[in-house]
Amino acid sequence: MKENLNDLRTFLVVARTGSFTKAGAQLGVSQSAVSYAIRGIEERLKIKLFHRTTRSISTTEAGEQLYQRLLPLFEGIDREIDELGTFLGELRGTLRINATELTFSVLWEKFDRFLNAYPSVNLELSGDTRFIDIVAEQFDASIRLGSDVEKDMIAVRISDDLAMCTVASPAYLAQYGEPKTPEELANHQCLQLRLPINGGILDWAFTDPTSQETVKIQPQGRFIANTNSILINACLSGVGVMWMPYHLVEDHIASGELVPILREWNKHYEGFHLYYPNRRENSPLLKALVESLRG
């Protein structure tokens, strides 16, 4: 029995998202159309592919087996079609990249260069702080600090180390003084970043200039935000002291709006790495992206 390939693609999206509604939104069709397609597959195959409740959808054992076997096949079809563009002397296709919002802001100029160099390539960037299974969620690659990735992944360094810094406005320092060690920050208003996943507050990390050991503190203060841009505005207004990637505030430092403090304690993190499944190492699209990001 031959199955409808569009219905099978619908099945893959439902299995990945766990939702008829989300699948419909991604496919550009109604929720009822998705439900109809899945019901049709199950009736033709005479087997239940999903457990359905009023709150969730999950694959049955048979559905999960079908998902795991179909996914690489459809990825292979898409890849072969995309690579036909090489006969026309151009790259075609879509790349879905997962990283944090901070990562994309650091690397934006490189992504912009990639888009200009390959006008027939579609690029989707998804900002997320989670460490996800990029295969299960159908991303082509992800970017994170450091090179520690799962054993079946290839990691490629694409940036210099990330430098952190601690800053405050001249008005704040004139009123409250300048801390000389991270421990003295306990006497200051620290601008805190609320983490989006578990709701915790981001710890601040420093490198001891004598021992080179990492020193972490839990910042305390009366101002909390969940984005760096809001924290920067608060810092410029003199609300408190901020710990931030240097590149996000270097223009404010150059203009004198913010003053770097605790310079000898600045922490550096290993640069950003692009990682992807080793079965994709020969992908022309990924090779082109790596070249752009490493440039």
Rank of each mutant, 00 (worst) to 15 (best):
L185W: 00
T94V: 12
S30M: 07
T103Y: 05
V14D: 05
I197T: 08
T53I: 07
V290K: 14
E183C: 08
I261T: 09
I77K: 14
T86M: 13
L262Y: 13
S237C: 04
T129V: 15
K2P: 09
H188L: 09
L293E: 01
D203T: 12
L195I: 07
E42H: 03
H268K: 13
G238S: 06
G240R: 09
D78T: 04
A168Y: 06
Q31W: 12
G40I: 05
I132C: 03
K287F: 02
N116M: 08
E61N: 10
E213W: 04
A99G: 13
E3A: 07
I97A: 05
G199F: 00
L27F: 13
N98T: 02
S237A: 07
N116H: 14
E281Y: 00
L70P: 11
G28C: 05
V241N: 06
Y36R: 15
N98A: 09
W243H: 12
F139S: 04
L70G: 01
E75F: 03
T166R: 04
S292D: 03
L107D: 08
L71A: 10
L185S: 05
Q138M: 13
F87N: 04
E42C: 03
N4H: 10
H268E: 00
L49P: 08
T53P: 04
P209E: 06
E3K: 10
L115F: 08
P245G: 04
N122I: 14
L231D: 04
H247R: 11
V29Q: 13
A205R: 11
L286M: 07
S237Q: 15
D152W: 06
Q65E: 12
E3G: 10
